Amino acid sequence: MSHNVSFHLKMPIQVKKKDSHFVAGSSVLDVWSQGEDRDKAIQNAQEAIALFLESCFDRGTLDDVLKECGFISFSKSGVPRELAKAIPSAEDEFEADIDIPLAINP
């Protein structure tokens, strides 16, 4: 019997208008998508990010990809002060919810 599990993360997303469409994505992972309006671009970017992370997990490369993107682990006390200052926040950037569904196969 398998059990469904979902990992939930918040990811910074940037949105920009390009001609007649919008481009949205994560510069953290370098994953981008587009849509005919802002909401569709965001929705497509969230799906693209989830699929990218699922694909990395399936190939066994998730740890390497996250490290290559600059991810580090830190204690529950929070992001080290020197890193928190280094994280840019753009006017067209916000945090989006990304769900990554997995199943446990005992």
Rank of each mutant, 00 (worst) to 15 (best):
A41L: 03
G78D: 01
L66I: 04
T61C: 05
S77R: 14
R38I: 04
I13M: 10
K18E: 03
V15T: 09
Q34K: 14
A90S: 10
K17W: 00
S20K: 15
K17T: 06
H21E: 07
D30F: 07
V28Y: 00
I100E: 01
E93H: 09
Q14W: 07
R81A: 13
L62M: 13
S73D: 04
G35H: 10
V15H: 11
R81E: 09
I42G: 13
E93D: 04
V79R: 05
M1E: 08
A48P: 14
A90G: 07
F71G: 06
A84Q: 15
K76C: 05
G70A: 04
A86C: 04
H3F: 09
S26T: 13
Q43W: 11
P101L: 00
L102Y: 02
K16Q: 09
N44Y: 08
S77E: 09
A48W: 04
D92E: 02
K76G: 15
L62F: 07
D64C: 05
P88C: 03
G78P: 07
F52H: 15
A96L: 06
E54H: 12
D37I: 07
V79K: 06
S77T: 11
F74E: 03
S26P: 06
L53M: 08
F22N: 01
A86H: 09
A84P: 13
S27N: 15
M1I: 08
A45F: 12
F94L: 03
L53A: 03
A45K: 15
Q34V: 00
L83E: 06
H3E: 05
R81L: 05
N105S: 13
F57V: 11
A41S: 07
V65H: 02
V31T: 12
A41P: 14
P80E: 01
P80M: 02
H8E: 12
S33A: 15
N4H: 07
A86V: 10
I100C: 00
A90K: 14
E95G: 04
S2H: 11
D97S: 13
K67E: 01
P101S: 03
P12T: 11
N105M: 09
A48K: 07
D92N: 15
A96H: 13
L53T: 11
I72H: 09
K85R: 15
N44M: 11
I72R: 12
G35A: 06
F7A: 08
S73P: 04
